[in-house]
């Protein structure tokens, strides 16, 4: 299963699950739920954190937070 930290930039992916994240309830509250489409926007210099777009807002998260977000194309 692919995880968000491995997704190339400017891709649209669908979230499969955030269940394995230690902060899954917080991710859910930010709208990161199974079925949600997100776009990878840009990376900070040094590749971390990353910024994604969902429902018109931009959210940044660290790679260590993104690695628990399972996605599919």
């Amino acid at each position: 299963m692919n995880t968000l930290n491995h997704v190339e930039l400017r891709q649209v992916v669908e979230i499969v699950s955030v269940d394995h994240s230690p902060i899954s309830s917080k991710l859910t509250e930010m709208g990161l739920v199974a079925g949600q489409l997100i776009t990878t926007l840009f990376r900070a210099p040094f590749g971390d954190p990353i910024a994604i777009e969902l429902n018109g807002t931009v959210l940044s998260l660290r790679l260590e937070e993104a690695q628990f977000i399972e996605v599919k194309a």
Binding site: P22, I23, A51, T57, V58, L59, S60, L61, R62, E65
Partner: peptide, 10 residues
């Protein structure tokens, strides 16, 4: 409590 970013870029 572990620190996390999860920050909105308005």
């Amino acid at each position: 409590e572990k620190g996390f970013l999860l920050l909105e870029l308005p």
